[in-house]
Design a protein around this nucleic acid. Structure first.
Length: 292
DNA sequence: AAGCTCTCCTGATGGC
DNA sequence: TGCCATCAGGAGAGCT
């Protein structure tokens, strides 16, 4: 379940291990992993061969490796279970190995994309004038990006007719937040997930953003977080969660603030964890009589 | 036309 | 023991 901090850990690993490496050959072992490359697997491998990686970049949960001299980039999304591994040539294939990139330097090893559930994937895209792969143009800046515009974000929340957790997961409004850190930040902010965004005072939005940044920064400091063996950082080490969660996964356990049993609600085909006392469900305003 | 629901996928887990 | 249902969830297609 990689969110911004986990993806950033992977980005740093890629930056360290594959920057300046030249791609000799690419092997696609599962077509679904390159489905976002609409021209197909053969075009994907052909575009990469012979090119050199510039330092990895990231926006939200997307990361990419610009290709030197090509105005294109190798874009990656880890989805639910995607991993990058740098392995020595000849290391046994992982069970869920999907794409292999072999470098010209035999000492550089291979870059492998491993992904059990195949929600993630790789693709090659032209870079826009802003230096983003075109497929990422609709993704908002993330809250750790110094160009993130708090006033614009608050304005968007006020205009939207939606609820706060939906907005946090909408990558076109704010990127990098997933289900886990959304629940954590909402708990810290004492906000119920169904709170209409149009009712948020500016100070509440600013406070919420502060908690999002705190949660993400702490996770990043812990080296990325994970709950199961699916997430492994670029070296193949398990990025196990080093700090405790306050909300996510704590159904029936006492709220760390008030002791009330935490609850889990089915929400958007997933779960929301919250404290029913600290995070009161907003009153649903009576609808105006119809037909007036 | 913005907002919401559905669907993709695999492995672990639990109930009967 | 074996079989089936359920759950995990990012993101985009598609519907209203």
């Amino acid at each position: 379940m990689p969110e911004l901090p986990e993806v950033e850990v992977v980005r740093r690993g890629l930056e360290r291990l594959v920057t300046g490496r030249t791609i000799a050959a690419v092997e696609v072992l599962h077509p679904r992993s390159v489905r976002r490359h609409v021209a197909g697997a053969a075009d994907f491998t052909g575009r990469l061969a012979g090119l050199r990686f510039a330092p990895a970049r990231r926006r939200g949960k997307y990361l990419w490796l610009p290709l030197e001299g090509a105005d294109e980039a190798l874009l990656a999304h880890l989805g639910m279970s995607g991993q990058f591994r740098v392995q020595p040539p000849g290391a046994p294939d992982e069970r869920h190995l999907r794409v292999r990139l072999v470098f010209t330097d035999p000492h550089a090893g291979e870059l492998r994309f491993v992904d059990q559930r195949t929600f993630g994937g790789l693709s090659v895209h032209a870079q826009t004038a802003e230096g983003l792969p075109d497929a990422v143009a609709h993704i908002a800046r993330d809250p750790l990006d110094e160009g993130f515009d708090e006033a614009a974000f608050h304005g968007a929340l006020r205009r939207r007719r939606t609820t706060v957790k939906r907005a946090l997961l909408d990558q076109s409004l704010i990127s990098g937040v997933g289900n886990i850190y959304a629940d954590e930040a909402l708990w810290r902010s004492r906000l119920h997930y169904d709170r209409p965004t149009a009712t948020l005072a500016r100070s509440r939005t600013i406070e919420l953003l502060g908690h999002i940044r705190d949660v993400m920064t702490a996770a990043l400091a812990a080296g990325g977080t994970s709950f199961d063996s699916l997430y492994v950082n670029v070296n193949g080490e398990s990025g196990y969660f080093a700090r405790t969660l306050d909300a996510y996964g704590r159904e029936d356990e006492p709220c760390r603030r008030c002791g009330t049993a935490m609850r889990r609600s089915a929400w958007m085909n997933r779960s929301s964890y919250y404290c029913p006392r600290c995070q009161r469900r907003p009153r649903t305003p009576a609808r105006a009589p119809a037909g007036v």
